[in-house]
Amino acid sequence: MKQNQRYNPAEFQRKFFVYRLLQDYYSGCLWQKKDNWNEILLTLAETRYQEEIIFFDLGMRLIQKLTQEAVYDFNRLFVGPEKLLAPPYESAYRNAEGLLMQKETTDVRKFYSIVGLSVVGQNREPDDFIGLELEFLCFLLYQAVSCFQRGEERADFYLNVYFEFLNMHLGNWVSDHCEDVLRHSTSYFCKGMAMLTKGFIEREKSLLMHKEEIL
């Protein structure tokens, strides 16, 4: 089914919103927005995709309540101090050694540097932390849209980097990561967020074929 993916401001607003939500989630800031959670859910519901994205939709149903158990579950999965059940780092999945700060990390670093970005606290915080990869993707998409609106040619460049990064990095490991979460999580919330993440990134990846038509 080939859809018309042409530039649609609402569609991009939705993407930015989801990216930011996932970033907040992985960086552990979401809990501070606990009081606004219902509002966030409403916005999320409004930004529903027209077509059915099973994982995304299911995920949305599971994240209705943000409980304290979810916070503990989150920390057990991604923070520690025990052995992480779903390490939120690319190299933990893609490096044969399963370590942090490996070639995958520096490859991601190279991508960031293409657009003149670098991580604050380089070599302390792995560049391939999922929160940073999500932030980077969101940044690229935002730049693409901004350039497009201003009629600048550079929009294509950003979009290319966007898909390339998705294809070479986040899109390559996030499913495994989310499956780890689904396997080990003890809360609906974290399971839901894993589904949401998986559904969202997979859909983004699938747009690669229609890259030319997006903007």
């Binding site: 992480l84 933990a92 370590l99």
Partner: peptide, 8 residues
């Protein structure tokens, strides 16, 4: 570089 180090 273990992912399981205590980080914070």
């Amino acid at each position: 570089y273990s992912p399981d180090r205590i980080k914070q």
